[in-house]
Computed example of a mutant assay.
Amino acid sequence: MGATRVIRWADLTVTPWKNGGGRTREIAGAPAGAGIADFAWRVSVAEVEDDGPFSAFPGVDRQIMLIDGTVMVLDVDGTEHRLAPFSPLAFPGDAATLGSIPSGPTRDLNLMTRRGHATGTMRAVPVDAAAPYRTPVDTGGVLVLLALTDGLVLQPTDPTDVAAAGGGHVLSRLDAVIQDQPGPVCVSGAGMLAQIRVDVPGRD
Protein backbone atom coordinates (compact mmCIF):
# COMPACT_ATOMS: atom_id res chain seq x y z
CA MET A 1 0.00 0.00 0.00
CA GLY A 2 1.13 3.57 -0.44
CA ALA A 3 0.19 6.73 1.44
CA THR A 4 -3.54 7.56 1.27
CA ARG A 5 -6.01 5.62 -0.86
CA VAL A 6 -9.76 5.80 -1.37
CA ILE A 7 -11.43 2.42 -1.82
CA ARG A 8 -14.85 2.59 -3.42
CA TRP A 9 -17.49 0.19 -2.08
CA ALA A 10 -18.71 -0.51 -5.61
CA ASP A 11 -15.25 -1.74 -6.61
CA LEU A 12 -14.85 -4.36 -3.87
CA THR A 13 -15.00 -8.06 -4.72
CA VAL A 14 -17.93 -9.99 -3.23
CA THR A 15 -17.10 -13.42 -1.77
CA PRO A 16 -20.11 -15.66 -0.91
CA TRP A 17 -19.79 -17.76 2.24
CA LYS A 18 -19.46 -21.51 1.75
CA ASN A 19 -22.47 -22.08 4.04
CA GLY A 20 -24.65 -19.69 2.01
CA GLY A 21 -25.38 -17.51 5.03
CA GLY A 22 -23.89 -14.30 3.73
CA ARG A 23 -21.21 -12.49 1.74
CA THR A 24 -17.95 -10.71 2.56
CA ARG A 25 -16.09 -7.81 0.98
CA GLU A 26 -12.45 -7.38 2.00
CA ILE A 27 -11.43 -3.72 2.34
CA ALA A 28 -7.78 -4.05 3.35
CA GLY A 29 -5.26 -6.46 4.79
CA ALA A 30 -1.62 -7.40 5.05
CA PRO A 31 0.75 -8.76 4.02
CA ALA A 32 -0.03 -8.24 0.35
CA GLY A 33 -1.41 -11.37 -1.23
CA ALA A 34 -2.08 -13.10 2.09
CA GLY A 35 -5.03 -15.46 2.27
CA ILE A 36 -7.46 -16.20 5.07
CA ALA A 37 -4.94 -18.55 6.71
CA ASP A 38 -1.88 -16.30 6.81
CA PHE A 39 -2.93 -12.64 7.11
CA ALA A 40 -1.43 -10.42 9.83
CA TRP A 41 -4.53 -8.23 9.84
CA ARG A 42 -7.70 -7.93 7.81
CA VAL A 43 -10.60 -5.47 7.56
CA SER A 44 -13.82 -6.55 5.87
CA VAL A 45 -17.57 -5.98 5.72
CA ALA A 46 -19.92 -8.95 6.01
CA GLU A 47 -23.55 -9.11 4.91
CA VAL A 48 -25.28 -11.64 7.16
CA GLU A 49 -28.50 -13.22 5.92
CA ASP A 50 -28.99 -16.22 8.24
CA ASP A 51 -28.21 -17.40 11.77
CA GLY A 52 -25.21 -19.67 12.09
CA PRO A 53 -21.78 -20.38 13.56
CA PHE A 54 -18.79 -18.13 12.96
CA SER A 55 -15.69 -19.65 11.42
CA ALA A 56 -12.93 -20.39 13.94
CA PHE A 57 -9.69 -18.38 13.64
CA PRO A 58 -7.14 -19.79 16.12
CA GLY A 59 -4.56 -17.22 17.21
CA VAL A 60 -6.64 -14.30 15.92
CA ASP A 61 -8.39 -11.52 17.84
CA ARG A 62 -11.64 -10.23 16.36
CA GLN A 63 -13.66 -7.02 16.62
CA ILE A 64 -17.06 -6.54 15.05
CA MET A 65 -19.34 -3.51 14.66
CA LEU A 66 -22.93 -3.60 13.40
CA ILE A 67 -23.31 -0.96 10.64
CA ASP A 68 -26.68 -1.97 9.13
CA GLY A 69 -29.63 -3.58 10.86
CA THR A 70 -31.03 -3.15 14.37
CA VAL A 71 -29.41 -5.95 16.34
CA MET A 72 -27.07 -8.92 16.11
CA VAL A 73 -26.75 -11.46 18.90
CA LEU A 74 -23.46 -13.29 19.39
CA ASP A 75 -23.04 -16.27 21.70
CA VAL A 76 -19.31 -16.37 22.47
CA ASP A 77 -18.31 -19.47 24.44
CA GLY A 78 -21.74 -19.52 26.07
CA THR A 79 -21.97 -15.79 26.88
CA GLU A 80 -24.58 -13.77 24.96
CA HIS A 81 -23.78 -10.30 23.58
CA ARG A 82 -26.39 -8.07 21.90
CA LEU A 83 -24.74 -5.76 19.39
CA ALA A 84 -26.41 -2.39 18.83
CA PRO A 85 -25.41 -0.28 15.80
CA PHE A 86 -21.96 1.34 15.97
CA SER A 87 -20.99 -0.38 19.27
CA PRO A 88 -18.01 -2.69 18.65
CA LEU A 89 -17.44 -6.00 20.39
CA ALA A 90 -14.02 -7.63 20.80
CA PHE A 91 -13.72 -11.41 21.18
CA PRO A 92 -11.17 -14.16 20.48
CA GLY A 93 -11.32 -15.83 17.10
CA ASP A 94 -10.66 -19.15 18.85
CA ALA A 95 -13.97 -18.95 20.75
CA ALA A 96 -16.99 -21.00 19.73
CA THR A 97 -19.21 -18.22 18.37
CA LEU A 98 -22.79 -18.43 17.13
CA GLY A 99 -24.48 -15.44 15.50
CA SER A 100 -28.19 -14.75 15.17
CA ILE A 101 -30.09 -11.89 13.52
CA PRO A 102 -33.54 -11.78 15.17
CA SER A 103 -34.62 -8.65 13.27
CA GLY A 104 -33.43 -9.72 9.84
CA PRO A 105 -30.31 -9.35 7.68
CA THR A 106 -27.45 -7.20 8.93
CA ARG A 107 -24.17 -5.79 7.75
CA ASP A 108 -21.12 -5.64 10.00
CA LEU A 109 -17.59 -4.28 9.93
CA ASN A 110 -14.88 -6.74 10.97
CA LEU A 111 -11.29 -6.35 12.14
CA MET A 112 -9.10 -9.43 12.60
CA THR A 113 -5.53 -9.24 13.93
CA ARG A 114 -3.19 -12.20 14.32
CA ARG A 115 -1.61 -12.34 17.78
CA GLY A 116 2.06 -11.49 17.75
CA HIS A 117 1.75 -9.85 14.32
CA ALA A 118 -0.68 -6.95 14.76
CA THR A 119 -3.09 -5.27 17.19
CA GLY A 120 -5.98 -2.96 16.47
CA THR A 121 -8.86 -0.83 17.69
CA MET A 122 -12.25 0.00 16.24
CA ARG A 123 -14.75 2.77 17.08
CA ALA A 124 -17.43 4.97 15.54
CA VAL A 125 -16.59 8.67 15.16
CA PRO A 126 -19.13 11.47 14.50
CA VAL A 127 -18.04 14.20 12.08
CA ASP A 128 -19.40 17.69 12.71
CA ALA A 129 -19.86 20.10 9.80
CA ALA A 130 -18.54 22.92 12.01
CA ALA A 131 -15.24 21.17 12.78
CA PRO A 132 -13.54 18.78 10.32
CA TYR A 133 -12.30 15.49 11.77
CA ARG A 134 -8.51 15.42 11.76
CA THR A 135 -6.45 12.51 13.08
CA PRO A 136 -2.78 11.49 12.86
CA VAL A 137 -1.26 8.24 11.65
CA ASP A 138 1.87 7.23 13.55
CA THR A 139 4.93 5.36 12.30
CA GLY A 140 4.13 1.65 12.08
CA GLY A 141 0.41 2.27 12.03
CA VAL A 142 -2.35 1.89 9.47
CA LEU A 143 -5.59 3.88 9.56
CA VAL A 144 -8.78 2.64 7.91
CA LEU A 145 -11.82 4.91 7.82
CA LEU A 146 -15.20 3.68 6.56
CA ALA A 147 -17.90 6.20 5.70
CA LEU A 148 -21.04 5.08 7.52
CA THR A 149 -23.10 7.89 5.99
CA ASP A 150 -23.08 10.05 2.88
CA GLY A 151 -22.03 13.67 3.24
CA LEU A 152 -18.31 13.24 4.01
CA VAL A 153 -15.26 14.47 2.08
CA LEU A 154 -11.61 13.40 2.39
CA GLN A 155 -9.64 16.64 2.34
CA PRO A 156 -6.09 17.04 1.03
CA THR A 157 -3.54 17.67 3.78
CA ASP A 158 -0.68 18.35 1.35
CA PRO A 159 -1.12 21.23 -1.11
CA THR A 160 1.06 19.33 -3.62
CA ASP A 161 -1.34 16.35 -3.64
CA VAL A 162 -2.59 16.61 -7.21
CA ALA A 163 -4.91 13.58 -6.79
CA ALA A 164 -6.81 15.38 -4.04
CA ALA A 165 -6.96 18.76 -5.77
CA GLY A 166 -10.30 20.36 -6.53
CA GLY A 167 -11.83 20.20 -3.06
CA GLY A 168 -11.12 16.65 -1.96
CA HIS A 169 -12.60 13.21 -2.54
CA VAL A 170 -16.34 12.93 -1.93
CA LEU A 171 -17.05 9.72 -0.02
CA SER A 172 -20.20 7.75 -0.68
CA ARG A 173 -21.56 5.55 2.07
CA LEU A 174 -19.26 2.54 2.72
CA ASP A 175 -16.35 4.00 0.77
CA ALA A 176 -13.10 3.57 2.71
CA VAL A 177 -9.96 5.63 3.24
CA ILE A 178 -6.66 3.86 3.99
CA GLN A 179 -3.45 5.56 5.11
CA ASP A 180 -0.35 3.54 5.93
CA GLN A 181 2.28 6.26 6.23
CA PRO A 182 2.81 8.83 9.01
CA GLY A 183 0.84 12.04 8.67
CA PRO A 184 -2.60 13.56 9.22
CA VAL A 185 -5.92 12.58 7.68
CA CYS A 186 -8.74 15.11 7.46
CA VAL A 187 -12.43 14.44 6.74
CA SER A 188 -15.00 17.23 6.51
CA GLY A 189 -18.79 17.31 6.26
CA ALA A 190 -21.44 15.94 8.57
CA GLY A 191 -21.94 12.25 9.25
CA MET A 192 -20.40 9.18 10.84
CA LEU A 193 -17.14 7.29 10.30
CA ALA A 194 -15.89 3.95 11.52
CA GLN A 195 -12.25 4.32 12.53
CA ILE A 196 -9.90 1.34 12.64
CA ARG A 197 -6.28 1.64 13.72
CA VAL A 198 -3.87 -1.22 13.18
CA ASP A 199 -0.42 -1.34 14.76
CA VAL A 200 2.17 -3.69 13.28
CA PRO A 201 5.20 -4.22 15.57
CA GLY A 202 8.50 -3.59 13.81
CA ARG A 203 6.86 -1.92 10.79
CA ASP A 204 8.59 1.31 9.72
Rank of each mutant, 00 (worst) to 15 (best):
V198S: 06
S87C: 13
G191M: 01
A130K: 14
G166L: 11
M122D: 01
R5N: 14
A30D: 07
L111Y: 00
Y133L: 09
G52V: 07
G120R: 03
D158L: 12
V185N: 10
G35A: 04
V185H: 08
G59H: 08
D199V: 13
R173K: 15
I64K: 02
T70P: 11
D51A: 13
G99R: 06
A147M: 11
A34T: 05
D61E: 13
R8K: 14
V137E: 01
L111G: 02
G21Y: 06
A34P: 00
V177M: 05
A131E: 15
P88Q: 06
T79W: 12
M65I: 04
S100K: 04
M1R: 13
D38I: 05
D204T: 15
V45A: 02
L146D: 03
M1V: 13
L83P: 00
P102H: 07
G35F: 02
G168C: 09
A28F: 07
P92Q: 08
P126I: 03
L146Y: 08
N19K: 00
V125S: 06
Q195N: 09
P182W: 02
V76C: 10
L109S: 01
P201T: 03
R123S: 15
W17C: 10
K18I: 00
V60N: 06
V144H: 04
D180R: 11
T24E: 00
A28W: 09
T135H: 14
V71C: 15
I67E: 09
L146H: 06
R173E: 07
S55W: 07
P88F: 09
T149D: 07
A56R: 15
R134S: 15
L111T: 00
D150Q: 08
I67N: 04
